[in-house]
Amino acid sequence: MDFGDITKIKPTGASRQTAQQDKLGYQGVAASHAMAQTDEKRMRNYKTIIQSVAQKYKIDAALIAAIISRESRAGNTIKDTGGFGDYDPVRKAYNAFGLMQVDINPNGGNHSAVGTWDSKEHLDQATGYLIDFIGKFQTDFSQWKKEEQLMGGIAAYNIGNLRVRSYPHVDVNTTGGDYANDVVARAQWYKKNGYP
């Protein structure tokens, strides 16, 4: 499957809200790149399994790394919770699991956690979901360019495909209002820095 070329996308990068995670006084692509770079040392722990899963699915390793950076800051935000994240105080339970934060909320994605939070099995599961979302956009929005379908699939990984309905406004409903644009900007940084 041809997923499009992340280097051909001109993302807007991280929103001010997302950039605040690192207390950055700026937003946009520069903020996304700074956050990706902050996570790079931790990301090295997973580079081998990222590359293995990327090769299996024929998808950019940089894109997997970028989602790991966005979702768990390369494990930094979840290592003390056994890999669980996105705590819901109403349900008194976590909504997501693993480096790529697969949605385990019964009212959301309702997926089962596969493998340990930092395992190849987890990355395999999560990347499979990402590819399924991209495939939905390739089918449902066949008039979109491959890169636009890729952006839709990335946004859907965050909020589900039914909440992404138009391009270039794929991030209207995503966390921070920037999910796909931030992930692609981070992926572009990782692609230039060791994750082909």
Rank of each mutant, 00 (worst) to 15 (best):
A36V: 07
G83F: 00
L99A: 09
E40G: 10
K41V: 03
L63C: 12
D140T: 00
N173E: 06
I50W: 01
A65W: 00
T81H: 12
G25C: 08
Q51Y: 10
D103S: 09
F137H: 02
A113R: 11
V90E: 12
G135S: 13
F3L: 13
D86L: 15
G85L: 13
K23N: 13
R42T: 09
I9V: 15
I9Q: 06
N158R: 03
K146V: 04
A34K: 07
D22Q: 13
I9E: 02
E148M: 07
I9G: 07
K41Y: 00
V183I: 07
T174V: 04
D88Q: 15
R42W: 14
K8Q: 14
G153V: 01
G194E: 01
G153N: 08
H111E: 14
K10C: 10
D132S: 14
G28T: 06
D182A: 05
E147T: 09
W117D: 13
F141M: 00
I134H: 01
K92W: 12
S119T: 12
Q188A: 03
Y157S: 03
A185E: 10
W189D: 14
Q27H: 09
S52P: 07
G75Q: 06
S119F: 01
G108N: 08
I159V: 11
Y179G: 04
Y179D: 05
R91L: 13
A126R: 02
Y167F: 15
I9R: 07
N193C: 07
L63M: 10
W144H: 04
G28A: 08
G75P: 12
I159C: 02
N110C: 08
K120N: 09
F84S: 14
N193V: 10
K191F: 15
M35A: 06
G108E: 14
T174W: 04
Y195E: 04
N45C: 11
L123W: 02
G160K: 03
D124C: 06
Y129Q: 11
F141Y: 11
I104Y: 14
A74E: 10
Q188V: 11
G115S: 13
Q125W: 09
F141V: 00
S69T: 13
K79G: 08
V183F: 05
I6H: 02
A14Q: 05
W117M: 09
R70H: 05
T116I: 01
K120A: 08
V90Y: 14
Q20C: 10
D124V: 05
G109A: 03
I154S: 02
V102C: 13
A61C: 04
A113Y: 10
Y57W: 13
D124T: 06
D171F: 00
T175R: 03
W117G: 12
M100H: 03
F3G: 01
A62S: 10
Q143W: 07
N76L: 11
I6F: 09
P168Q: 05
Q101A: 14
Y195D: 00
L150T: 05
G135H: 00
R42G: 15
A187L: 06
D2Q: 08
D39S: 11
A54D: 06
A61S: 04
G194R: 04
M100I: 09
I154E: 02
F84K: 15
H111F: 11
P168S: 02
G28H: 07
I64N: 01
Y129K: 05
M1C: 11
K120F: 00
